[in-house]
Design a protein around this nucleic acid. Structure first.
Lengths: 199, 199
DNA sequence: GTCTATACGAAGATAGAC
DNA sequence: GTCTATCTTCGTATAGAC
């Protein structure tokens, strides 16, 4: 692995654990076994490091979403796929996901990170499309508040990065299964609706 | 309102919006219309400010949880009450909730904020108890992974502080209703279980 | 590619006048 | 209760030697 990538990986771990602002350039250098000045041989600034970490991750993630969106599976399958790929992303890129979750609000305020907001909007489009399809096709309840459901799914999925650990008792596939089960069917044995389709 | 509380409120807003570390003592002073040195007449440090904000909020919140836990309602009702009071807390104390959500991990590392971890454990106890009761009483599916379900609920509820705004199109009661509906019944019109109780 | 040395600014905090 | 002035430490970043 090129030195540059190695350093980025170390930085990502620290940013994810302690936060961007709470991680000093000296911390990153020390964790890498070099001195802070030496980092500037590889990067122009601490900001450039997060930038590279986040942008390369996002690019990959959205390529995956696009593939799901464009597939010809039915609405419900697409939703399941989108959820599963999100948990896979948490598994494979947990530092990147954590940094995005924790810092996007703050970083998004700078011009340089305007793409974060764009990606967010893009992700919303994907989900709103999938959910709308789902309701139209009859796979999802017709009385759903699509916007709220989108937020619910988005939050539910990504927030798992706070506790998910690769190598724990549940694999990312297991977690995705359980989450989907709750999301699709709920935790209750009986419905609270009056006049729902199931009761 | 005593000056002290007024200043705490202003600080809370800034901490919630920009993060603890990203908010400078000078920011707080400026937003309060005074100079940074003057803040130290009221507080010994920036840390003391978050400390006071978080600890007083937590005390109140846990009193509410305890009341639910000790009530003699059935398991399902208690779960609903616990969810509703959480959304009410988001409504009434959104800065405090946001700060806790964003900074607990980092702050929890300091001795002074050890109580945050204790409160977290306490909250877990409440939910595990409620969910276990729920399964035992037959109100919740017997095949639930209690630990995972706890995390799911905790995350789902509190993360709403990221987008909920008082005065928006949905009241906190509306949001709680919709969340409970999804949590309890899911978003689907038909079950994905094979051998579930409903299918 | 890393080190030494250091500049520069920002941030938390203090002392004493008003 | 706030201001003026200031100290100190820390963090980002740079320059040039090795």
């Amino acid at each position: 692995m090129p030195r540059r990538d190695e350093l980025l990986g170390i930085a990502a771990g620290l940013f994810a654990e302690k936060g961007f602002k709470n991680t000093t350039v000296r911390d990153i250098a020390e964790a890498s076994g070099i001195l802070s000045g030496s980092l500037y041989h590889h990067f122009d600034s601490k900001e450039s490091m997060v930038d590279e970490i986040l942008s390369s991750f996002q690019e990959q993630l959205f390529a995956d979403y696009d593939a799901v969106l464009k597939s010809d599976a039915d609405a419900r399958t697409k939703i399941e796929q989108a959820v599963r790929l999100s948990f896979r992303a948490i598994h494979e890129h947990r530092y990147e996901v954590a940094i995005f979750q924790n810092e996007a609000d703050y970083l998004g305020g700078f011009d340089r990170f305007a793409y974060l907001a764009e990606r967010n909007a893009q992700s919303r489009d994907v989900w709103i499309t999938l959910l709308t399809e789902g309701v139209k096709s009859g796979a999802l309840r017709a009385d759903l508040d699509i916007e709220l459901t989108y937020r619910f799914i988005r939050d539910t999925v990504w927030v798992a990065v706070r506790w998910y650990r690769p190598g724990g008792s549940l694999s990312h596939e297991d977690v995705a299964d359980q989450y989907l089960r709750i999301l699709l069917d709920g935790i209750s044995t009986s419905s609270i609706t009056e006049g729902g389709t199931r009761a």
